[in-house]
Amino acid sequence: DGLLHVGDISWSRVADPSTELAVGDVLDLKVLKLDRQAGKISLGLKQMSPDPWKEAVASLNPGDRVTGEITRLTDFGAFVEVLPGVEGLIHVSEMSWTRRIQRPSDVLKKGERVEAVVLKVDSAAGRLSLGLRQVLGNPWNTIKERYPNGKVIEGKVTRLATFGAFVEVEEGIDGLVHVSEFTNEKRIGHPSEVVKVGQVVRAVILSSDPETRRLKLGMKQLEATSAGHFAQEATVGDRVSGRVLHVRGNTVTVQLGEGVEGVCIVEEAAPDALAPVSGGSLAAQLAAAWKGGVKSPAVKSSELYREGQVRSFTIIAMDTAGKKIELAPA
Rank of each mutant, 00 (worst) to 15 (best):
D1P: 03
V6D: 05
G7T: 14
I9M: 05
S10I: 03
V14L: 05
D16F: 00
D16M: 00
S18W: 01
D25F: 01
D25Q: 01
D25V: 03
V26R: 08
L27C: 03
L29P: 01
G39I: 05
G39L: 05
S42A: 09
M48H: 02
N61K: 09
D64I: 09
D64A: 08
E69S: 11
T71M: 10
L73V: 10
D75T: 13
A78L: 00
V80W: 11
L83E: 08
I90F: 02
H91Q: 02
S93Y: 03
E94N: 07
R99K: 15
P104S: 04
P104L: 02
D106Q: 00
L108N: 03
L108D: 00
E115F: 07
A116I: 03
D122G: 07
S129P: 01
L130H: 10
P139R: 00
N141R: 12
G150W: 09
G150Y: 13
K151N: 08
L160H: 06
A161N: 07
F166A: 10
E168N: 12
G172K: 08
I173P: 03
V177S: 05
V177T: 14
E185Y: 08
K196M: 04
A203E: 02
S207T: 06
D209M: 11
E211G: 06
R214I: 07
M219C: 13
L222M: 06
E223K: 06
A224V: 12
S226L: 01
G228S: 15
F230K: 11
D238H: 10
R239M: 07
L245N: 07
V247I: 14
T251N: 09
V252E: 13
L256I: 05
G259T: 05
C264N: 13
V266M: 08
P271T: 00
L274A: 04
A275W: 06
V277E: 04
L282F: 08
Q285I: 14
L286C: 05
L286P: 08
A287V: 04
A288Q: 10
A288K: 14
A288R: 13
S296R: 05
P297K: 05
V299D: 10
E303S: 11
S312C: 13
F313L: 03
K324R: 04
A328S: 13
